[in-house]
Computed example of a mutant assay.
Amino acid sequence: MNPILIAVLPLFLGFILDLLIGDPHNWPHPIRLIGNTIDKFEQFFRHFSSKTRGGEFRAGMLMAFCILVLSFFVPAVLLGIAYKIHWIAGVVIETVMCYQILAVKALKTESMNVYKELEKNDLEGARQKVSMIVGRDTENLTEEGIIKAAVETVAENTSDGTVAPMIFMAIGGAPLGFLYKAVNTMDSMIGYKNDKYLYFGRFAAKLDDVLNFIPARLSGMFMIIAALFCGLDFKNAARIYRRDRLNHASPNSAHTEAVCAGALRIQLAGNAYYFGKLYEKKTIGDDTRPVNKEDIILSNRLLYGTAWIALIVCMLGMVVVRWLI
């Protein structure tokens, strides 16, 4: 069997499986297992660490190292055994792993659940649905705030849940994809700048910034191209990207949000409450028109267009590199 085809197939088939199946809530999932492990490890390492700033930082760094080792080597060993048995066994198992790493359909499904509640004029239901996909406080969000939260989540996770994992899988297969998702999951769980996680979660948050630095910028480029093919305002997307791509405390999060805001000709971001505390944040995009629930559909169209472009680029990159080698 052609080794280039064996290398490329799991990513392609995993992507197709993700679009077809998504992430059924009642199915076991390795990313949820990683999340549960982070929760258990946090309790363990906090118990044995000093309560000083340095002690919390070292405990968080050691915990992150253990999570990364497990997240990379467990799938690497499983795949090593599978590929030794037969290349078909290896491709099948790695395809399932790649499928589990990606979150394109799940992101669309969860954001469209918010849309469906807004369609029924059920603001409380929409707040509950959006609370499942955002980290901010949602109990007092207006309809506009709910829509913005959903659109921003789709935009940001176009990189974190789609493009970035593809890039890492293209470089190092499913094991490197799981390592990336472990870092991303740690950041979402302990990467907050509050009293509890300011020092314990700092290493994980900084590592997430480092790993996402290039993928976030590539995601922005891919999304601008996708805006053209999706019939959205790609010129304004490029303009807002150049202007507002750094309008966020994170060096990476605003890149895809800026493109999305420009493509949809709306304004995103701004102040938000987290754990009862108001955080002042810059806005992204121009307030050209009021947001409406249809923007959730448009953001998902942009997500899918970007995902396909990223897949094509990653597969071509894999073919070229292996052909040169």
Results as ranks from 00 to 15, higher is better:
M1G: 08
L232Y: 15
A164Q: 04
I93Q: 02
N194Q: 15
L79K: 08
K277C: 09
M112F: 09
I224Y: 02
P215F: 05
S219N: 11
A7I: 01
L268A: 06
I88S: 13
A258L: 10
P251G: 04
K235R: 13
I16R: 06
V96L: 02
P165N: 09
S250I: 01
K281N: 03
R242K: 11
Y192C: 01
L68Q: 10
V320I: 15
D18T: 07
N157I: 04
L17R: 03
A269P: 11
F44C: 13
T306R: 04
R32H: 08
H25A: 11
G305D: 11
Y273Q: 06
F41K: 05
I85N: 01
M221S: 12
W87C: 07
N36F: 05
A310H: 11
I93G: 05
Y115A: 13
A103I: 00
K105V: 09
S131K: 12
K281S: 04
T288H: 12
H86I: 10
Y199R: 00
V8F: 05
P75V: 02
A204K: 03
V96E: 07
V8I: 06
W87E: 10
N212G: 11
L316A: 12
A64H: 03
I146P: 02
D187I: 14
E56V: 14
A272Q: 07
W323S: 07
A261Q: 12
F203S: 15
L5T: 04
K235S: 13
C98Q: 07
G285Q: 06
R53K: 08
D286C: 04
Y274K: 03
F234P: 09
C98S: 14
D244Q: 05
Y180H: 08
A272P: 07
I146A: 02
M63Y: 08
I67Y: 07
Y180K: 00
A258H: 06
R136P: 11
D122H: 11
G90L: 02
K120W: 14
V104R: 02
T95H: 07
V183C: 11
R265Y: 00
S111A: 15
Y115D: 14
P10Q: 04
V183T: 09
N157P: 05
R32A: 13
N194E: 13
L79M: 10
A82R: 00
T142V: 10
R46D: 02
A149D: 02
V104P: 09
I309Y: 06
R265G: 14
